[in-house]
Design a protein around this nucleic acid. Sequence first.
RNA 1: GGAGAGGUGGCAGAGCGGCUGAAUGCGGCGGUCUUGAAAACCGCUGAGGGAAACCUCCGUGGGUUCGAAUCCCACCCUCUCCGCCA
Length: 440
Amino acid sequence: MSIGVQRLREDAGRVRQGAIDKGEDPSVVDVALELDVRRRALQGEGDALRAERNTVSKRIGEVIRGGAAPQGSEVAALRDASTQAGERIAAIDRELATTEAQLEDALLRIPNPADPDVPVGGEEDSVIVRTWGDPAPHLEPRGAGADGSEPWTRRPHWEVGEALGILDLAAGAKVTGSGFPVYRGPGAALERALIDWFIGTHTREHGMTEVWPPALVNTASARGTGQIPDKEDLMYVVARDDLYLVPTAEVPVTNLHRDEIIEAEQLPIRYCAYTPCFRREAGAAGRDTRGILRVHQFDKVEMVLFERPADSGEALEWLTRAAETLLQRLGLAYRVKLMATGDMGFVQAKKYDLEVWAPGVERWLEVSSVSNFRDYQARRMNIRWRPEPGARPEILHTLNGSGLALARTWAAILEVYQQPDGSVVVPEVLRPSMGDRITA
RNA sequence: GGAGAGGUGGCAGAGCGGCUGAAUGCGGCGGUCUUGAAAACCGCUGAGGGAAACCUCCGUGGGUUCGAAUCCCACCCUCUCCGCCA
């Protein structure tokens, strides 16, 4: 991810303000500007020397073909000139290489400026733009008990799940470690049904193309989406083979088009993909230790969009609605949060979080994050499109969003659909594949 | 894992160490012709940097050389055969 030098040069003021809004140090902007000037100067110097060497080398060929002795003094003089130019070129190239590396590094430290319609500020400035459904109460006050009169309290998902034998955290801890849940029987079926129904809905109704990507990616791909170096601690590493377990399908799916030029008529490209997601969650220990709200492995269906720049703003709204559709049909109350500049991360230009109400733990759970990266991510991956046949390629826009993240959705379903008798009613849309009810 | 072949422009496919950023074919774009279209013919047609001159890029990275797509080394990837295997 990086800002473009072009934009940096032409719009330095707004880029600097964007950094401030996101709570980042704006001085890198000026550092980058200086490095850019230096880089171009060195490039020009090197190019001139190369041009000189090229003509001299050509001349050597001509003189020799013209009959001069390869060992003659004329040729020797030319060789000498060429060698000297070569040495100076090597020196400048070394300097250029370090300058370029410094520039790239500086560019990487400049955050993507947020869209103008994003509220400026921290977490408290994020705004709930809409809510849907009635949040189920933690305590059912009036006659919802099994006998029609007793009030009852909704239990957290881990209690419901363990009681029904469909969630086995202890087994996961034994087999792998804490944070690796095991779903059994109808619990496993629920997970599978959700994945299938999500993807089916996206492909049939949202026109997305299903992709089933690798769950391990190489270094170049991890770098492409910015997991390296930004979030290196987030990922599990297979050091022996230089591979990373994917923290989200965004990584393999977005990299599908790395270093490509896409013709205009191909756009938009809209994918959905299921993968397991692996996250070390370094530094997060202690939070959400109970249940499956924060785990090291979970399942997720991710939506990834490649759009024409002019369309990406609208595409973000469309993508958000696509994720909301799923929650609505599952009958889960949720709210949509527009993240403020300081709360949205380094790389997003605009981001919505979808939070579902979980009455057992009495919290809003983030089950989807939908973002427009504009050209920031695509630039690093060198994904371009050609506006017109024969026209110069331009960086396109990428977006992605969860549709949806499973563990928390699974948990919310258990908490919302649990019954006073301990069973869990299956949401209507999933009944065709797994029946009406989960009982002990 | 073992043996062999190969990685060149959107695709296919040439390329003696200098005259090759790259023949040729296909595709694409524009034009001539046509009522229109097809066919035929003519022209154009990779990317990046730079205001430009110009420079860089022939899997990646090193090396040899005055000069490398062309020679050498390492790595990566693809294909064929063998082995192993869900």
